[in-house]
Amino acid sequence: MKKLATILTMSCICLFGSLQTHASTTHKVKTGETYYKIASTYGVSVHELMNSNGASSTLIYPGQSIKIPSTITSSEKDLVARLVEAEAKGESYAGKVAVATVILNRVDSSLFPNTITGVIYQNKQFTPVQNGKINESASADSKRAVSEALAYRGQGSGSLYFYNPDKTTNRWLRSKQVTVVIGNHVFAK
């Protein structure tokens, strides 16, 4: 089960590509920090962070300056977290990361809009948009799940869809290749 959670977490990070950005910043490495911890803090992928710094190894040193690449806006991150909260409330943390990853994967896919807002508000895609639950606040867990999904961007199985098999009869959706099952959700591509 722990291996499945790790695989799922890794699957949850392929979403944020062509997004609004902020200016790049620099981070001074503190004792005990890793590329993963820094990436999670700033909401970027480890891969992007290493590429921006020309790193071929994950080894970093206290006092080293790390360039932080541009990332999504805080309002986009909040929007994803609110969708995660509404779609995966009551699900495991891994399930929340997986839902966030689907959003990011859709942004990167040519099959969907290329912005967070476009993906989330695409007609008839997410029930919380239709019933207004998207407007409720996100929990700390959902916010953390989005940061983790961003940190592992590009390292997952490419899930573009998720559904609860007890709540959908959509044959088209059920015909998609299953990538992982977490809690009450089936993830597919």
Rank of each mutant, 00 (worst) to 15 (best):
L160A: 09
M1R: 02
S75K: 15
T169D: 13
F162C: 04
N184V: 08
T21W: 00
F16N: 07
N53T: 11
Y35A: 12
L49E: 08
I72H: 02
K2L: 06
S52W: 14
S18E: 11
G17P: 07
R106F: 00
S110C: 06
D166Q: 15
M10I: 09
L15M: 07
N53W: 11
V84F: 00
V107P: 00
K96I: 04
R144E: 12
P128H: 10
E85V: 03
F162H: 13
M1C: 09
G32M: 04
L104N: 11
A23D: 15
T115I: 05
I182L: 08
T73R: 09
L79H: 02
I120G: 09
K28Q: 06
G54D: 15
V146Y: 00
K167M: 12
S157D: 08
L59N: 13
M10D: 04
V181L: 07
L83H: 04
S147T: 12
V119P: 02
L8K: 08
Y163N: 15
L8W: 10
G95Q: 02
S175N: 14
F16P: 01
K189F: 05
N53K: 14
N131M: 12
Q122S: 08
V29Q: 11
V102R: 00
A151C: 10
L160R: 05
K37I: 10
Y61D: 08
R153D: 14
R82D: 05
G154Q: 02
A138Q: 04
S110Y: 01
G32D: 05
Y36Q: 08
N114D: 03
T179A: 05
S70E: 05
L59I: 14
K133V: 11
S110L: 07
G63L: 03
L4K: 00
I120T: 03
T169P: 10
Q20I: 01
T6E: 09
F126H: 03
T117Y: 06
A86E: 02
T73K: 14
Q177T: 08
N135Y: 11
V97Y: 01
A140L: 12
I182Q: 11
L160N: 11
K67L: 15
F187C: 06
Y163E: 14
L15C: 08
K176P: 13
R153A: 13
S18C: 10
E136S: 12
S57Q: 14
D78H: 03
C14Q: 13
V84L: 00
Q122F: 05
R82V: 06
T21Q: 05
S92D: 06
K143L: 02
A100P: 04
S142T: 14
N51R: 12
P128K: 05
Y152I: 01
I38G: 02
I120A: 01
V129S: 04
S159L: 09
T9I: 08
M10A: 15
R82P: 02
T21I: 06
L104C: 07
L173C: 03
E33W: 09
L59W: 12
G132L: 01
T127V: 15
P69C: 14
A88E: 07
A81S: 10
H27F: 03
Q125G: 13
R144M: 12
